[in-house]
């Protein structure tokens, strides 16, 4: 029986070195490229009709577009429009990465902490830059909660600072842990099906069927949560509370 963690193994497909660094094209890279291709096909093929009354695919593409657009409108406001392409990229990349990872024998690149952390730190640095560019030094009032007695400020500022700095960590671990835990659980239960035979094998199989449905929800939900938190961080940077 293969280890439940075997599915997270990265195997190089095309060895590649740039400046002495190993940047081989791996199964993870393949799924990232496939995710980009899937997003491109989803939107470009879906919208190719440019129909006034959309068909099925165009409806889904438009709904996705509107879903992300609505998230920004509600959480960031009108000023959030210029960050829309980035947020849509983030949402669709994570969503398609999660969904493609559910295919048998494929690989879930969002189950690797280094990938989710890179995405989270990109959001964190980007949001901080947006805040400093928009508000200058005034941006740092974000760490001073309003309406607090002056005596409390020395205690509260470090707390606010820590909570701010822990954002990329919580953001990346949430996505990584959810994806990894779900996939590991499915593999663990799948491993019991054959050994338990005809009499007992149906129980873990039933659990796996339920988990598969559950994983689809998680795949969507985690992409949504990641994007929503990005919108909330953008709100803080744009409006300072």
């Amino acid at each position: 029986m293969a280890s439940p963690l075997h599915q997270f193994e990265i195997t190089p497909l095309i060895p590649l070195h740039i400046g002495g660094v190993d940047v081989s094209f791996t199964n993870s890279s393949l799924l990232m490229v496939l995710a980009v291709a899937a997003v491109a096909i989803f939107f470009i093929r879906g919208m190719s009709g440019r129909a006034l009354v959309p068909g099925r695919w165009q409806s889904i593409a438009e709904l996705t577009y509107d879903f992300v657009g609505g998230m920004i409108r509600e959480n960031v406001g009108h000023e959030g429009r210029k960050y829309f392409p980035f947020v849509l990229t983030l949402f669709s990349f994570i969503l398609f990465g999660n969904l493609l990872g559910l295919l048998p024998y494929s690989f879930t690149f969002t189950s690797h902490i280094v990938v989710t952390f890179a995405l989270a730190i990109t959001v964190f640095i980007g949001v901080t830059i947006v805040g400093i560019v928009l508000h200058g030094a005034h941006f740092f009032t974000l760490f001073v909660p309003s309406g607090v007695p002056k005596v409390m400020i020395p205690f509260l500022v470090p707390i606010e600072l820590i909570s701010y700095l822990s954002r990329p960590i919580s953001l990346s671990i949430r996505l990584f842990a959810n994806m990894m835990a779900g996939h590991t659980m499915m593999k663990v239960f799948a491993g019991f099906i054959i050994p338990l035979g005809f009499l007992g094998g149906w129980a873990p199989l039933a659990v796996d069927v339920a988990l598969t449905g559950f994983e689809f929800v998680v795949a969507f939900l985690q992409a949504y949560v990641f994007t929503l938190l990005t919108c909330l961080y953008l709100h803080d940077a744009v409006h300072l509370h």
Partner: peptide
């Protein structure tokens, strides 16, 4: 390194695609 490299490549490619093709189209 390989994951970060390909993540950067794919994410930037998708970002450009979204900015210059998908968002204008939709």
């Amino acid at each position: 390194p390989t994951q970060l490299f390909w993540l950067a490549v794919c994410f930037v490619a998708l970002y450009l695609l979204v900015t210059y093709v998908i968002v204008p189209r939709v």
